[in-house]
Simulated scan of single mutants.
Amino acid sequence: MTGYEFEQFVSDLFKKMGYTTQLTKASGDQGIDVIAARQGRKIGIQAKCYSNLVTNKAIQEVSAGIVHYKLDKGIVVTNSHFTNSARELALSNRIILWDRNMLKEKIKEFY
């Protein structure tokens, strides 16, 4: 699965979860790949299709994207896992992390 295909998949997953979704532009997305909205709240999602661990950079990108798009919160979704440093940074910035295990749970629940 390419990065763009993963972004589309994450968008579809959030649709199945009851959100309306919008993919941002492929290049220069300001750290947000998908905007999901429900009940007047907007979530910015950074989708990372990686074979390695996801680092702080993804947390920094989504934190900036929240401000840029005026969103209520941010999530980083990956098919991999996060470094300890990324987990720590996400916690202090209130960014939600979905690793491979959480993604598998959501797929089982909504597909």
Rank of each mutant, 00 (worst) to 15 (best):
residue 29 D to Q: 14
residue 51 S to D: 08
residue 16 K to Y: 10
residue 24 T to F: 12
residue 81 H to P: 03
residue 60 Q to Y: 11
residue 94 R to F: 04
residue 25 K to R: 13
residue 41 R to Q: 12
residue 67 V to H: 10
residue 101 N to G: 05
residue 46 Q to E: 14
residue 83 T to W: 11
residue 108 K to E: 05
residue 58 A to P: 01
residue 20 T to F: 00
residue 61 E to H: 07
residue 95 I to P: 01
residue 78 T to N: 01
residue 48 K to D: 04
residue 50 Y to V: 07
residue 14 F to A: 02
residue 22 Q to W: 10
residue 49 C to T: 02
residue 80 S to V: 04
residue 82 F to S: 01
residue 59 I to C: 12
residue 81 H to Y: 15
residue 20 T to G: 03
residue 104 K to P: 00
residue 70 K to H: 14
residue 39 Q to N: 15
residue 85 S to D: 15
residue 68 H to C: 13
residue 104 K to Y: 08
residue 64 A to M: 00
residue 35 I to H: 02
residue 71 L to Y: 06
residue 12 D to S: 12
residue 49 C to R: 08
residue 63 S to M: 01
residue 109 E to V: 03
residue 80 S to A: 14
residue 28 G to T: 12
residue 109 E to C: 08
residue 23 L to A: 14
residue 80 S to G: 04
residue 107 I to N: 00
residue 101 N to F: 09
residue 95 I to H: 04
residue 91 L to D: 10
residue 28 G to S: 15
residue 96 I to K: 10
residue 74 G to W: 03
residue 41 R to C: 07
residue 42 K to W: 06
residue 57 K to F: 09
residue 69 Y to V: 06
residue 44 G to T: 08
residue 33 D to F: 02
residue 69 Y to T: 04
residue 69 Y to A: 01
residue 102 M to N: 00
residue 51 S to F: 02
residue 91 L to Y: 14
residue 12 D to L: 12
residue 67 V to E: 13
residue 60 Q to D: 11
residue 18 G to F: 11
residue 35 I to P: 00
residue 43 I to S: 00
residue 13 L to I: 13
residue 4 Y to S: 12
residue 44 G to D: 13
residue 42 K to G: 01
residue 73 K to T: 11
residue 84 N to M: 15
residue 26 A to M: 15
residue 76 V to P: 00
residue 56 N to P: 02
residue 69 Y to P: 06
residue 77 V to Q: 02
residue 86 A to G: 12
residue 94 R to V: 06
residue 82 F to M: 06
residue 20 T to Q: 13
residue 3 G to R: 13
residue 37 A to S: 15
residue 60 Q to F: 06
residue 9 F to G: 06
residue 53 L to K: 12
residue 3 G to T: 13
residue 91 L to M: 15
residue 55 T to P: 02
residue 23 L to V: 05
residue 66 I to R: 10
residue 13 L to E: 05
residue 22 Q to Y: 10
residue 60 Q to N: 09
residue 78 T to I: 03
residue 34 V to F: 08
residue 10 V to M: 00
residue 98 W to K: 08
residue 97 L to G: 10
residue 47 A to F: 09
residue 19 Y to E: 01
residue 98 W to Q: 00
residue 17 M to G: 05
residue 48 K to V: 07
residue 106 K to N: 08
residue 30 Q to N: 15
residue 103 L to S: 12
residue 31 G to E: 00
residue 97 L to M: 02
residue 95 I to S: 03
residue 29 D to C: 12
residue 53 L to W: 04
residue 65 G to N: 03
residue 40 G to M: 10
residue 97 L to H: 03
residue 109 E to N: 07
residue 7 E to Q: 15
residue 102 M to I: 10
residue 4 Y to D: 13
residue 74 G to E: 04
residue 40 G to H: 07
residue 94 R to G: 11
residue 11 S to Y: 11
residue 71 L to Q: 13
residue 84 N to K: 15
residue 109 E to Q: 12
residue 65 G to L: 02
residue 27 S to G: 06
residue 61 E to F: 08
residue 60 Q to E: 08
residue 27 S to W: 14
residue 100 R to D: 13
residue 98 W to C: 03
residue 38 R to L: 05
residue 69 Y to H: 14
residue 110 F to M: 11
residue 76 V to R: 00
residue 53 L to T: 11
residue 52 N to E: 13
residue 13 L to A: 02
residue 28 G to K: 08
residue 60 Q to A: 06
residue 42 K to S: 10
residue 96 I to R: 03
residue 23 L to I: 07
residue 55 T to H: 10
residue 21 T to F: 04
residue 1 M to T: 07
residue 52 N to H: 11
residue 78 T to E: 08
residue 58 A to E: 02
residue 56 N to T: 12
residue 74 G to L: 04
residue 100 R to W: 01
residue 82 F to E: 01
